[in-house]
Design a protein around this nucleic acid. Structure first.
Lengths: 187, 187
DNA sequence: CTGCCCATGTAATCCGTTACATGATTAA
DNA sequence: TTAATCATGTAACGGATTACATGGGCAG
């Protein structure tokens, strides 16, 4: 899914500036399954505008800095529908945290404990973001994805809270000299 | 997490060839949270060997083709431990499926139905892979991550099975002319 | 005898992140 | 007056995917 399609999709919901699109992609619910930075967004918007798929309107209301608000055009909407027919790739997850936990035996137990704390805190943050008022979906598709996001992070957090103590104990025991056969239980 | 560290980590568990490392990164449990292709693996292995972090042994047993089996060296193990102390980045999920479901209103309902079927089937596949015998973890860290993977995919599949019919119904109803306010319920 | 799996590598290309460059407004 | 937020863009660098090139063994 290229950044241009991503921008077009977001603009199909609501007109916005490059800055606002980027914010949605970092803080908003869409950030759960996609992301992009200025470096890709601005060129993508420029290209879309050149192709006539979006229209620009420059706002500079109260002496404020220039603000280019982009709006999707009918042609843009058509192009978007066509883009969304492409075959989706498999989900791709990159988790350096899980990677480190997988190789926890090679890391000082105290450090693993710190990572666990941060990972759990992060999950709580995402859950809070997803529960915020400005995040309520307004159609069936959005509701479906929002609910799935909530379910996933809830399940992850539950597992982490239930099993982190066991992992800590195993690691400490091994470091202490007495290797144990316990720790995190699968499911 | 660069590919070199990834290879080094895998080799710390078991000696392997580039081909086998790639297979683990595509089919194995590690594929859940990281991946890499030949184009990055072979150069990474060459670099690691040049630095003395891994050693090569060429096997050509029964007239078979050359097979370079890499083994981690003590220096490699030291370097690995140091690498694993780096600050992990946040998890990154790229899901074109969720993206499409989010914008399901712009896609023909029959197509969305097809995507839902494929997405659910994919989740069953991953769950089967994770439950396979050759996937049993052998220490606390691996057990922890394996259990988490299982829990996550279980939760996702449960949600999908519970809410996909609702999404289909909403989409069909809207296409049929009578817009509804129901569909997938958040959690 | 066809197609698939094993097996290693290189090269081109694309894409995205990161850092840089600039600057106004507002709240502490 | 300092930091944060709003705001737009460019350039360089790195990394990853993809395709290409090659070739033997094995099963159907």
């Amino acid at each position: 899914m290229d950044v241009a399609t991503l921008c077009l999709s977001l603009l199909s919901l609501k007109s916005a500036s490059g800055y606002e699109i980027r914010k949605q992609l970092v803080d908003g619910p869409v950030s759960l399954f996609h992301g992009a930075n200025y470096g890709s967004i601005y060129p993508a918007l420029a290209r879309l505008a050149a192709e006539g798929l979006i229209a620009v309107e420059v706002h500079a209301p109260d002496g404020r800095l220039d603000k280019k608000v982009y709006r999707i055009t009918p042609e843009g909407r058509t192009a978007l529908r066509r883009s969304l027919l492409a075959e989706p790739a498999h989900d791709r997850i990159r988790s350096e945290f899980l990677f480190l936990f997988f190789f926890a035996a090679l890391i000082p137990p105290a450090r693993v404990g710190e990572l666990l704390d941060r990972y759990i805190a992060r999950h709580r943050e995402v859950l809070a973001m997803l529960s915020a008022e400005d995040c309520v979906p307004d159609n069936a598709g959005q509701r479906f994805v929002h609910g799935l996001g909530l379910a996933i992070f809830r399940a992850r957090l539950d597992y982490l809270e239930a099993n982190a103590p066991g992992l800590r104990a195993s690691l400490d025991a091994e470091a202490g000299g007495a290797p144990t056969r316990g720790g995190a239980k699968a499911v």
